[in-house]
Design a protein around this nucleic acid. Structure first.
Lengths: 335, 335
DNA sequence: CTGAAAGCGCTAACAT
DNA sequence: ATGTTAGCGCTTTCAG
């Protein structure tokens, strides 16, 4: 039996109805008579019919997918968000396309490419360093910014990064630390900026002097955390506690400090940001700020879907709460 | 200026040619005259035209995307492979769709769904526990198995898991260990099976007695590694070294052992599998078997693309070498 | 409640 | 080298 792929026509023929009726049975079953519906379903079964999404999408003038623009797929933080998005998009019959904004040479161009290409019915932006010059493209698909966006022009799902940073610093201060340093992410990244700002605010609130030389620049990666550790180790007048803008950097930092023979938290207290899964299994387990990744991914997908269905580019913004997860990497300072 | 989205028709009109010529200029520039080509390109620019991929794909009877079926998106191991695949698919004008096989209730059904739906021009299978009953679907898209597949029926890109396991055990034996245990992945998973087999083979090769009670069952997750640690801690007649079938389990294991006050490698030596980025930053840094993830992702994508272009479902298989990365989690046994 | 028919935007024969 | 034309498979008015 040399079965070719069967189309809606084959089904119509087999069921003795028109293609329109088959189509209705599939997308709007309510309007067809019980008996015909059954006949059609049976015909679908016997022919092994599957809708051709490409044809459907062409006709409906949509693409049937959503695209996520991510800065760094290798970061486990994003992987889990993808999983969450996938879990809401799949049931809704949307595909999830993934694009790595670091991969190509020109991230900005890629963004406007996706905006114009019609490849996706909507996008979710995770890259905090993207600054699209023009978002006012007529007929562009809806966008959800999954981070604080420069001008708040975009509907967004985000956590309150400044607040998270304040939580971290307060925790350190409450443990008795007066010499608190910070490791930032990439300087132009919105996330870095907000967290640094929160850090400064809470320092002030605690009546602590900001020390510019205690603010180290990182780029969210483990290697950059390790690099900062080397600087920290080399200096004499150094902070007794550090708030790092990502768990990955905290991992790199702690690793390098420990490999150098010092101990966390005895020699330095450390707080990270993200609460990626691994940090609970480290020794010491890392105190960090939890971002509910699953929730972020789900809400971003849901909000976007809503905007797509209503075909509007504006929409609600949502702030997901963060919380401090106290673990073992913070202790009172020496002496 | 109320610019609508412009079609190939608009371009044709603007350039004073037929739609066919525009189409040719885009997909086969060689056959159109220099002068017309320029006129068309100019018209494209002035109209702001973008090809409608949906229409193109419908006409070409393809979908323009490749789908990756992954067991666990939250695992950083897979994220990096996605990044690598994306880096070869994007330039080739293919989209990358991601599906989480754990998410839905019925993974097998999902696989055959993707096989039949025409949603993708090809698939890459990463889930070693999938066992599609029937792959002989006429007209199904090409598949690359990115793991050892049951019957070798599928073209594949894979690492030699058994060999990796042997490397791990040999390393432990060479450090002087005679009491070597193993933590498996999920029992029906091909990866688990191959690694367990390699473990057994090398044990035999080293003249060591296999001890069934030293083979613990895990599921590749950190939590399962921690669980095994609790069992290990509770027993008296226990192995002095452990080869774990994934880095994540090794992380969970080491964490739990250390939190219980014992030390790695002084009290137990540990070898993992995968070489995910984080393990080099742990204390102690984890000795492990490296799988070149980027290479795996790239090759899988390349092979698949080749099969798609030639529209064939058979193709070459490739074995990517693994290597042992010696770090600090292995030491000679006590006494 | 169902059918006929007109395309969605594009490409690939087939002509010229 | 370029134009004409016939669809790809589906949905959706518009009639009946």
């Amino acid at each position: 039996m040399d079965q070719k792929i069967s189309t809606i026509q084959d089904v119509a023929r087999a069921a003795g109805v028109s293609t329109a009726t088959v189509s209705r049975t599939l997308s709007n079953p309510g309007v067809v008579a019980e008996s015909t519906r059954e006949a059609v379903m049976e015909a679908i079964r016997s022919t092994g019919y599957r809708v051709n999404h490409t044809a459907r999408n062409l006709r409906r003038q949509r693409s049937g997918s959503v695209i996520a623009l991510m800065p760094n797929l290798a970061n486990p933080f994003f992987a889990q968000i993808i999983a969450a998005m996938s879990s809401v998009l799949t049931p809704a019959q949307y595909g999830l396309l993934i694009a790595d904004t670091q991969a190509g040479p020109d991230a900005e161009a890629r963004l406007s490419h996706y905006l114009l290409s019609g490849l996706a019915d909507g996008l979710v932006l995770f890259d905090g360093s993207l600054t699209p010059s023009r978002l006012d493209i007529p007929g562009r698909p809806p966008i959800i910014a999954a981070c604080e966006w420069m001008d708040g022009a975009l509907p967004s799902v985000r956590v309150d990064n400044a607040c998270g940073a304040r939580l971290a610093v307060r925790h350190l201060a409450e443990a008795g630390h007066r010499r608190i340093g910070h490791v930032t992410g990439p300087p132009r990244n919105v996330l870095s900026v907000s967290r640094l700002q929160g850090f400064r605010e809470e320092l002030a609130a605690q009546g602590l002097e900001p020390r510019p030389d205690w603010i180290y620049e990182g780029d969210f990666t483990m290697d950059s955390g390790a690099m900062v550790a080397r600087k920290w180790l080399a200096s004499t007048d150094r902070p007794s506690a550090l708030f790092l803008s990502s768990d990955e950097m905290a991992i790199g930092f702690m690793g390098a400090v420990q490999h150098a023979g010092l101990r966390v938290p005895e020699d330095v207290s450390v707080v990270g940001f993200d609460n990626i899964e691994v940090v609970g299994h480290l020794t010491p387990a890392l105190t960090t700020i939890r971002q509910p990744r699953t929730l972020i991914g789900e809400r971003a997908a849901e909000l976007l879907l809503g905007m797509i269905e209503e075909s509007r580019t504006d929409g609600p913004s949502e702030v997901i709460p963060v919380e401090l997860i106290p673990r073992a990497s913070v202790a009172p300072p020496r002496e």
